[in-house]
């Protein structure tokens, strides 16, 4: 067990996107947890606060915006860095993500390199620090 590993919670309703994100981040030494919608994401995050959230916008039951808005009111979760990922690239969508509490916004599809670089930066892991499980 390596407790130093950074934990990333991926919230997306598309199983392929989750699997993709997991594959990229695990290869880079992150521990990845998955949730399938905003409500599920909140439950996962509350039970086990992650070091980083990667959240899809368009999801059933509770979308990414709503999830982040709730999350930002939770004392234990309000300062967890969050990345939103969407197929929309309009400025208005970015603005909405920002208002909901996202720290960064990626437009799908995200290159693996950008994804792991962002995860590394947002969780404070240096390049040399590549922990193997």
């Amino acid at each position: 067990m390596n407790n130093d590993k950074r934990r990333v919670l991926v919230v997306d309703d598309a199983v392929t996107v989750r699997a993709y994100t997991r594959q990229v981040l695990e290869a880079d030494g992150f521990v990845v947890d998955e949730a399938i919608n905003g409500i599920d994401g909140l439950e996962h995050a509350m039970a086990n606060p992650p070091d980083l959230l990667i959240v899809d916008i368009n999801m059933q039951k509770m979308d990414g915006y709503a999830m982040l808005r709730v999350l930002r009111q939770e004392p234990a979760l309000r300062d967890v860095p969050a990345v939103m990922i969407s197929t929309e690239s309009k400025d208005s969508d970015r603005e909405q993500a920002r208002l909901a509490g996202a720290n960064w916004y990626f437009v799908k599809p995200v290159k693996p390199k950008d994804l792991s670089e962002a995860a590394r930066l947002l969780t404070g892991r240096s390049h040399e620090d590549k922990r193997e499980g």
Binding site: R72, D79, V80, P81, R98, N103, G124, R125, S126
Partner: peptide, 29 residues
């Protein structure tokens, strides 16, 4: 994000998460 309008509580929450994010980036680099 820090420049966004909002209630005091919202701005405080944003400050907290930005602080942590920026600190992490600087640590990573």
């Amino acid at each position: 994000i820090l420049a966004l309008e909002g209630t005091a509580a919202e701005r405080e929450a944003r400050r907290a998460v930005v602080l942590r994010t920026v600190r992490n980036i600087l640590t990573a680099q």
